[in-house]
Amino acid sequence: MTQAAVLARRRERLPFSHDERRAWLFLAPVATTLLVVAVFPIVYSLYISFWSIKLTRPHRQPFVGLDNYAQLLADPEFWHAVGRTTSFTVMAVTAICVIGLAVALLLNETFPGRKALQALLLVPWAIPYVANGLMWKWIYDSSYGALNGLLFQLDFIDKYMVWLGDANKTLPLIANAFVWKEVPLAALLLLVTLKSIPADLYAAARVDGAGALQRFLHVTLPALRPGFMLVIIYETMTAIRHFDLFFILTEGGPGDASHVLSWRIYVETFRNLSFGTGAAMSYILAIVTFALAYGVIRALGRNVR
């Protein structure tokens, strides 16, 4: 009796069964890979952010604790960058949601050619950001660009205008290029959510006397909530860290009009060669991303329950 109990406990304490050992063996490559290329760097990054590392003076790299962070938080330039990142993100995510919803609603209808449109939708998503960037740079070109040409031919403007070079227009124009490439993913995610709404719900609303608009407001929009949450989380995370377009389109300019956080990280690290500050800044960005993912998923979970 006691012997059996002892035996049972010993078995429970045995670390891993045959199957469990097999599972860990199968996971070993992924675990190793992610430890090396994700976990180690993110921890190392934290470590670096506590030091004053400048490649311009490789032999003096003092430990400075939280100084890098303190200096950043006290630096008005940093807060300006945060502000620009925020306004870029808000503009972009709002536009992505609106246009994405319109596209999803269109593709949710049944009509000949729908499949072709859906395939076309993937094209902007698939092309590299660099190509997207140079495409829009050329469209926005102040001397020969398509935007000027089009507006001029349509008589909206009487002379060619400066676009990206105008500090007031830079962020919205970059956001526009970003939106063009991000809309497909948002539209697809919303489309799947739309398709998951049971037809019974619409039939019931119809029986209850709801018109098309009312059905949209009372059935479609509430049902789209999880889809929108997903889109907002994902696109916000993508927008706040976005770098490529700022590099291609403006290199942070004109002046500092498009100095967003990711651009400042790049400048601090690779132009000023001050790795400690760069790491600290990128760590702040990472924490915001995690908080965002975690917080919004939690809120979503509560609503679902």
Partner: peptide, 26 residues
């Protein structure tokens, strides 16, 4: 079915949201 399965899934999903720019310096 193995102990640590849920934790592994969670860990892998977490690595998915690490922003690439945060990895640049290290």
């Amino acid at each position: 079915r193995f102990r640590g399965r849920d934790a592994s899934i969670y860990a892998i999903l977490t690595t998915r949201v690490i922003p690439d720019i945060a990895l640049v310096v290290p």
